[in-house]
Structures are given as structure tokens and as C-alpha cells.
């Protein structure tokens, strides 16, 4: 599905975020299918708010300009659940009241109706990340790395058209981190998803292989503010 059509990919079209009238960050770029844009910045630089804006969760005290366009479709005014943007957080956030398998089945689109088929798809997703047979387990009994892998498959089963990663590797220890990170990027590339990665770990940025942008904490210092613009096309 990797194509070079002019509309494909995730376009952040002249986005400016303001908090209480003060500009917080601006960004203007396009992330092609299968490629990764890494945004690095200290806390307070507005990177979480950027992800919130793209995914459809921006808090009302923020004001935003610009558009989010995914594969030619303007998402800016759509509710979160219609955007087809997969989100991964710092922690895996598996729903603690469901089993591992239920977590995955929750993500499957309702167009896939038959229970057995849903079950099979979820089981296969588990096997894909080396967790075959973990379906009946309580998510709380899985290790951090295993939980992150389940969370990744949960995100992908919802058939997203783009991925937003909010420091999803920061909760893992060093040895697991590289492994899980490679898995995420490999799967995203295979599915041809544009990926926006937010992190403050230099290594994450290097491993992503794409372009890296740094946001500087600025808004409160003076008139300069975080700016990043790029066209990876």
C-alpha cells in the first residue's frame, strides 16, 4: 500500500497550537506512508498537546489552527473514533477488567461480526508477536514488554491509517526497549503507516530512521516558540 500518490500520508497542515493566547508550537509537515517522523522535546514543549490535537482529544483551553489530513481526508473536525489514528501511550493501558484476548477483540472493527472469526483474528495477532496462548490471561500478570506488545497489536487490529506513539518505550527496561521498538517500526513499515513518534530518548529517534525534529521550550520565555517544519516527500 506504499504509494507515492500526492495525497497519501499524514499531513500536518500549518498547525499552530496556542494556550491562553500564547503560541505553544507550530508545525507544518507531511509524513509518508511507512516513514517515521520523530519529535523530540522537553516536557512542556507541547508535544503531548500536538498528539492530542491530531488524535482528536485537544482540551478546550487550547486553541488550534491548521488542519490534519490523512490520506487526503481532512480529519480536523472529526471525532476521535472516526479518525482511524492509532495511539500508543507511555504505559500499555490494557483495559484491566478484560482478558488479553478481550482487549484485542475490543479493537477489532464491528464489520467483522462472527465471534469465532474475531477470536481467531485476535489469537493470530497474539501469535504474531510471540504471545500465542496468552489470550485467557489477566493483563496484569504480563510483563511490561509483553503488555506493550499486546497494546501494539490492539492498536493495529483497529486498522488505523496512521500511528501516533507517545513515548511508548519509556516504561521498558533497556534490553527490551530495542526489541519492542524494532517490532513496532517493522510492523508499521509493513502496513505502510505514517508514524509520528514523540520521545525524549535520543536512541528512539535514531532507531526510527526518519527525520528528527526538536521542539524547544519557548512559549513562556519570550516571543520565539517551538517550530518544526519539514516535508519528507
Amino acid at each position: 500500500m506504499v504509494s507515492s500518490s500526492r495525497t497519501s500520508g499524514l499531513v500536518l497542515d500549518h498547525i499552530v497550537l496556542r494556550l491562553d493566547g500564547q503560541p505553544l508550537l507550530d508545525i507544518d509537515c507531511r509524513i509518508l506512508p511507512g516513514s517515521v517522523l520523530t519529535i523530540m522535546g522537553e516536557s512542556g514543549s507541547g508535544k503531548s498537546s500536538l498528539l492530542d490535537f491530531i488524535a482528536g482529544f485537544l482540551k478546550p483551553d487550547f486553541r488550534a489552527q491548521g488542519r490534519v489530513i490523512l490520506n487526503g481526508r481532512d480529519l480536523t473536525l472529526l471525532p476521535a473514533q472516526e479518525r482511524h489514528i492509532g495511539l500508543m501511550f507511555q504505559s500499555p493501558l490494557l483495559f484491566p477488567h478484560m482478558s488479553v484476548l478481550q482487549n484485542l477483540m475490543f479493537a477489532l472493527p464491528s464489520t467483522c461480526r462472527r465471534r469465532q472469526e474475531r477470536r481467531d483474528l485476535a489469537e493470530r495477532a497474539l501469535a504474531d508477536v510471540g504471545l500465542a496462548g496468552f489470550g485467557a490471561r489477566d493483563p496484569a500478570t504480563l510483563s511490561g514488554g509483553q503488555q506493550t506488545r499486546v497494546a501494539l497489536m490492539r492498536t493495529l487490529l483497529a486498522e488505523p491509517h496512521a500511528l501516533l506513539l507517545d513515548e511508548p518505550f519509556s516504561s521498558l527496561d533497556r534490553t527490551r526497549r530495542g526489541e519492542v521498538r524494532d517490532l513496532v517500526f517493522a510492523l508499521a513499515r509493513k502496513k505502510g503507516l505514517p508514524v509520528l513518534l514523540v520521545t525524549h530518548d535520543e536512541e528512539d529517534g535514531l532507531a526510527a530512521g526518519g527525520q528528527v525534529h526538536r521542539l524547544e521550550k519557548a512559549a513562556r520565555k519570550g516571543r520565539t516558540y517551538s517550530a518544526a517544519s519539514a516535508d519528507l516527500a
Binding site: Q81, F89, L93, R154
Partner: peptide, 15 residues
């Protein structure tokens, strides 16, 4: 944790 709701809606779940 508000992120549970965020995670669910980004998976396409209705309100």
C-alpha cells in the same frame, strides 16, 4: 486515567 477512554476511542469505539 483519562487515557483509557482515549485508547478506546482511538480504537474506533463510539462514546
Amino acid at each position: 486515567d483519562p487515557r483509557y477512554a482515549k485508547a478506546a476511542s482511538s480504537l474506533g469505539a463510539s462514546r
